[in-house]
Amino acid sequence: MENLNLEGSAKTPTVNFNSADGTLELTGRSIPENSIEFYKPLNDWIDAYGANPKPSTIVDVKMEYFNTSSSKCILDLFKQLESLNNGETEVNVNWYYEEDDEDMAEAGEDYDAIISLPFKMIEVEEI
């Protein structure tokens, strides 16, 4: 299947979903007024990937900002990945946040509390 590569914009993140490696990366900012439209292709890609996933799937989330509209869509992505995890792939989430960014660290904790996937919190100097 094809990879999903989207270049980031002022309101949307960079997306690199790679089916051959089983790596899904979301980087930057996600602040569109209505995020449903942006996230739909990502959901569709994960659906297709789920038909034949790699034994290990790594999800790297490196967000600088996201709005509440996106937070719901990101939760839905994790829920989709959570259902893949029960099958043929082991999904691991790496949640990156910049040092001193307690809000982004807390956002990761919030998802970790709701989603049963293993979350690794990774503090970095700059995203």
Binding site: P32, E33, N34, S35, I36, E37, T68, S69, S71, K72, C73, L75, D110, A113, I114
Partner: peptide, 17 residues
């Protein structure tokens, strides 16, 4: 967390959060 997990999204993409 409760609203994030249990709430539904409007067509406009607002999540009540």
């Amino acid at each position: 967390k409760q609203v994030l997990n249990e709430g539904t999204m409007s067509e406009k993409g607002t999540a009540g959060l």
